[in-house]
Design a protein around this nucleic acid. Structure first.
Lengths: 340, 340
DNA sequence: GTGAAAGCGCTAACAG
DNA sequence: CTGTTAGCGCTTTCAC
């Protein structure tokens, strides 16, 4: 079977305490015996049990990550960023996909609890929800009693660190760009308005219109849910009506895709029949040379930032709650332009 | 601090064995005391330590997953499929991204070893490599002594279960489709030919040409490496030469994107100036209504299959090594057609 | 410098 | 049906 510290100790004719010392590089060990032990460990391919070590130290080196959609490119990149830092620090990552399902989230949290992870990075299924869901989540998070970083979505009156996005500002800016281009009838395909990120992006849009004295018109407000499918349906509908907006703001990467899909099917040309700008970038669109303007964040970096924030919390458990708001970057590629 | 089984036992005035019994639903427990204990557990929000349990049982319920690129949509879907089954079975997933780097792979394997996972799903950085890398990998895998499923990429003379893809057949078929369309000058942007998956896809192409008595021409063979960038560079080059192939086979999802990028930049029209078919699908292309024909597998399902294979191995450790080859599905959308 | 002993939280015989 | 006991593999005092 697998070797244990006792086996190594026996082979080396020392006590397991000594082996433990060389394993952990702690305390004094005679140079000779240290070498001997190291040699035996290598030769016998011995790896200490992280389980036993965790139990003994009453602390693991495991980080939990809970995200809602592993197959969304945004979260793929987040995971990449987190992995990168986790790897540098020789930590271990426990991963859960909640599939945007609250009860899965609950189970994931229970699992994390039992696993005794050292820290958690969580993108909740909900975001600043009023109801029971959030109360329950906060309760669970408190019961966990471990350093936690909320990512992208949060809770009200959070007591946890968080990395979020300039939701309001990015969409205000995007709308402003459309306005300054001279568009009058400016539409929006919103995200899920039950989520704060959805609401904030909607508000940014509304306030920009207001500030520039453009009358908001309900018929150009299309309420979506951050999914390709819904955005597609909504777009299909308004594109085949006889009252097209001049320009549209699409509120996330998937919404943009749904919008474009409809656009193609309706044989409308971007920047000619209708203009647009989106929140989030879509790497694939760039690759394809499909020029869709956007205001976006760097998702890989967002993952890194979240993980580093967790590390800092480990170092300094008492420090005040920290929140970092990822800035947006504007990339204009022409789709926002008013056709001549 | 966190409650332990002892705390619960004390509160209930029973021994911890009894608590353990209700926790594990094993052995006889008086209905009254069971209820009492369950109540106390719930009220005090007690979650048993998975660490202690693993140590005691000498077996964890943790599955390791090692993949080379978390941000490739293909692996995002794989992860989704694995997660799905992991979740059903109440297992825990430990995740590593090797970033296609052998030394990271080695470290990931060490980590997996220490974590004492119950099983492993691995997509190696290399694939049927001849050199030291593979020898080392196989050694490590053997040292691990745990059920392992190789996914998408394998090793020579494998002793492990595996889920792979009809690499040869899919590319043979894709090439055949181009041939039957009447194309004569058929090019290929290969994948990484150091990987078996790359070689097999290349061979499928060559053999199809041979079987249909079409002379293979070196100038239409573009050696890529499965990346967007390389495929783009190669495409750009041959597209601006004066000897364009009639049709091209692109050997994976990223290669297809690089090819299309170049196509757009060169103002060539797919299905008119040049025809094409790819291995792997690109969901985004479908969404965008960009009709690119392909032969592809269902990646989410591939993840599920791999995870189920692992479960079956747990059930039946002695069974013969199993290999499942995911079939390809053809989707023709017009890009393969010969222009009239 | 090194070893003996206790203990981390849990499970698993084995008595009773 | 329930408690006692030993032990999982490791770390950590505390002696020596």
């Amino acid at each position: 079977m697998k070797l244990t510290i006792n086996d190594i100790a026996e082979i080396c004719q020392v006590s397991k305490s000594t082996v433990s010392r060389v394993l952990n590089n702690s305390g004094y060990v005679n140079e000779k015996t240290r070498e001997k032990i190291e040699k035996v460990i290598k030769e016998n391919i011995y790896y200490p049990s992280a389980t036993a070590r965790s139990l003994s130290k009453k602390e693991s080196n495991t980080i939990g990550v809970i995200i809602p959609e592993a197959d969304n490119a945004f979260f793929g990149e987040i995971l990449k960023g987190i992995s990168e830092v986790v790897d540098e620090k020789n930590l271990t990552l426990i991963f859960c996909d909640t599939n945007n399902n609250s009860s899965k989230e609950e189970r994931a949290l229970n699992m994390i609890n039992m696993q005794g992870v050292k820290g958690l990075i969580l993108t909740p299924v909900n975001d600043h929800d009023d109801g029971e869901a959030e109360k329950k989540l906060k309760g669970k998070l408190r019961d966990l009693k471990i350093p936690t970083v909320l990512l992208d979505r949060g809770v009200k009156n959070s007591q946890w660190d968080g990395v979020f996005f300039e939701n309001y500002q990015s969409s205000y800016r995007a709308t402003e760009i459309l306005i300054k281009e001279g568009h009058k009838k400016i539409g929006i395909i919103t995200g899920d308005l039950k989520l704060k990120i959805g609401k904030d992006r909607y508000k940014g849009y509304l306030n920009a219109l207001e500030d520039y004295k453009i009358m908001m018109d309900h018929k150009y407000i299309y309420e979506g849910n951050f999914s390709v499918e819904k955005a597609y349906q909504l777009s299909k509908k308004f594109m085949s009506s006889d009252d097209l907006p001049d320009a549209v703001l699409t509120c996330n990467n998937l919404t943009t895709l749904g919008f474009i899909k409809a656009l193609k099917e309706c044989n409308l040309v971007l920047g000619k029949d209708i203009s647009a700008i989106g929140i989030d970038n879509n790497e694939v669109l760039d690759i394809l040379g499909y020029d869709f303007s956007n205001v976006a964040r760097d998702a890989v970096d967002m993952g890194r930032v979240a993980m580093r924030m967790l590390l800092e919390r480990f170092e300094n458990p008492g420090r005040q709650r920290v929140e970092y708001i990822m800035p947006f970057k504007v990339s204009l590629k022409g789709s926002e332009k008013k056709s001549p």
